[in-house]
């Protein structure tokens, strides 16, 4: 019996599988806090893109608690923690030739951030 059969598809597609974790984990940051993205360079899975490492931003939204892919992708547990939308100015990321008006929001786990 295959693991995935045709009659299972509709239900799976409709339901999906959220990576949200129902755990009471304290947030390290709140909206408006200034943060700096850690300059880490793991050889293993991470969702911290190089272009924000070491850059300064502001917590824009708290999305709640999610599993942490840097550990869950390697079978090392969910390490549940808050995920935030962090706002960086275009100039912080790309220098003075970027528009002074523009910005970028990116989703970051607690373990990617330090207070700035």
């Amino acid at each position: 019996m295959p693991v995935l059969t045709a009659d299972m598809v509709e239900g799976l597609v409709k339901t999906g599988a959220s990576c949200r974790v129902d755990a009471d984990v304290k947030a390290k940051f709140k909206q408006g806090d200034k943060v700096i993205a850690r300059n880490i360079n793991p050889p293993t899975h991470t969702r911290l893109p190089r272009y924000v490492r070491g850059k300064r931003g502001v917590i824009a939204l708290d999305h709640g608690v999610f599993a942490f892919p840097d550990t869950s992708a390697h079978g090392k547990g969910e390490t549940p923690q808050h995920v935030y939308s962090v706002r960086f100015t275009a100039r912080e990321l790309w220098g003075k030739d970027a528009s002074e008006r523009d910005s970028l929001n990116i989703d970051m786990w607690d373990d990617y951030l330090d207070p700035a």
């Binding site: 949200r20 893109p49 999610f66 995920v83 275009a90 008006r101 523009d102 970028l104 989703d107 970051m108």
Partner: peptide, 28 residues
């Protein structure tokens, strides 16, 4: 270069319009 990309898609924005890029690196 979001403004350059938008221009190639035919969207030219005035200088007083803020461009906000959203990079969906997590599960949202």
């Amino acid at each position: 270069d979001p403004r350059g990309v938008l221009k190639e898609f035919g969207v030219t924005l005035a200088d007083d319009v803020e461009v906000r890029v959203w990079d969906s690196t997590a599960e949202l």
